[in-house]
Simulated scan of single mutants.
Amino acid sequence: MSEKQVKRPGENGSDRIAPVKPVGKGPVKRLLINTARYSVLFFAWTTVSAWVWLHNRLRIPRWLGNDSREAAVRLWSIAWLTLVWVLLWGTVSWANIISGIVLAVAIGVLLPLPRVPVEGRIHPLTVLALVGRLVVDFFISSAQVAWVAVRPGKPPLGAVMRVRVAIKSDMVLTLAVDYLNLVPGTMVLEIDHRRRMLYVHVFDVRSDKKVRQFYKQVSFVERMFIKAFERDSEWHPSPYHGIDDEYHHVRPTDRAGAQGLGDGGSR
């Protein structure tokens, strides 16, 4: 950047030309900015290098599972058991936390539960949207049930509705059933694992509009859980599934056609 020149009056009355330094970053400020940039690059490079090194050399213990997904489920179980142990004691201390971890690991090694197939990937943004919708449905359904309970007139007409869902994993199906059970006005009474059929008790089905609302809600839950956990591009059947193996061998196009026929017949 070239220096600008301005005229300034001299001592003898004549004008003299004096250079003016441009306004910009000083050497100290430039040094700090460059240092910050290099620090970010160094941190990113070190983090990626450490992750690659650990990924190539560390092996998941056999009792944690065969892949990172099952290991994540096992670690979550250990964290949950540790939390329950600390809550039982009522005091958060290092002794309770360490003893809880030891007890949780001992339970996982000595008294292992059946393997839980983890066959998809978690999408946090979709899960947050699902949780937000659950909160909204909870308050709306609670208000509707409370109004039906106090308003004058005949009691609501309840019924058991049958609906089929395209959720493949038993674990995700359990989460979807828990979602329906948490919303007031619906309660899952029975699950047909083979046909992926749910029998749901609905609090109020006095009109066709109420019935359509129920099927619309189930369709939303099914779509969001598949989007959050079971996208077809990320689906990897687990060898421990063992319940609906026939379902995995059906092509997505044939599965969609069978789903449409099943929904039309059941609804």
Rank of each mutant, 00 (worst) to 15 (best):
F138P: 00
F43V: 09
I78E: 02
R115N: 05
V118S: 07
A50T: 04
V218S: 07
L175C: 03
M197V: 10
Q144G: 01
S39N: 11
V183T: 12
V48S: 04
G260H: 07
S207N: 09
D15K: 06
A256K: 14
T186V: 04
I191C: 03
D244W: 02
E222C: 08
V6A: 11
N181Q: 09
V28F: 12
V145P: 01
T35N: 06
D254N: 07
R115H: 07
P22D: 00
R196S: 14
K168Y: 12
L111C: 11
F203K: 02
I122L: 13
A72H: 12
V73D: 07
A104K: 04
L189V: 11
R59I: 04
V205I: 14
S141T: 06
V148W: 00
V165S: 06
Y179A: 00
I33K: 13
R251L: 13
S14H: 02
D192G: 09
E222N: 15
R195Y: 02
D263L: 13
L64C: 12
V105L: 11
I191L: 14
E246D: 15
R74M: 14
E234P: 01
G120L: 03
N12D: 12
K210L: 04
S93G: 08
S77F: 10
D254V: 10
V165Q: 05
Q5M: 14
Q213M: 09
Y215G: 03
N66V: 10
E3K: 14
D254I: 10
V205P: 00
P239T: 08
S266R: 11
T47W: 01
K154H: 08
V165G: 06
V211S: 02
W63P: 03
V127D: 09
I107S: 08
G100V: 12
V177G: 02
R151H: 04
I122A: 06
G26K: 12
G120V: 01
A44R: 03
N34P: 00
D263W: 06
L113P: 06
L64R: 08
R133N: 08
R251T: 15
E11T: 08
L130T: 13
W45T: 05
V6S: 09
S39G: 12
A71V: 06
L75Q: 09
L113W: 12
A129D: 01
P237D: 06
A159T: 05
M171G: 03
D67W: 06
W51V: 07
E70V: 07
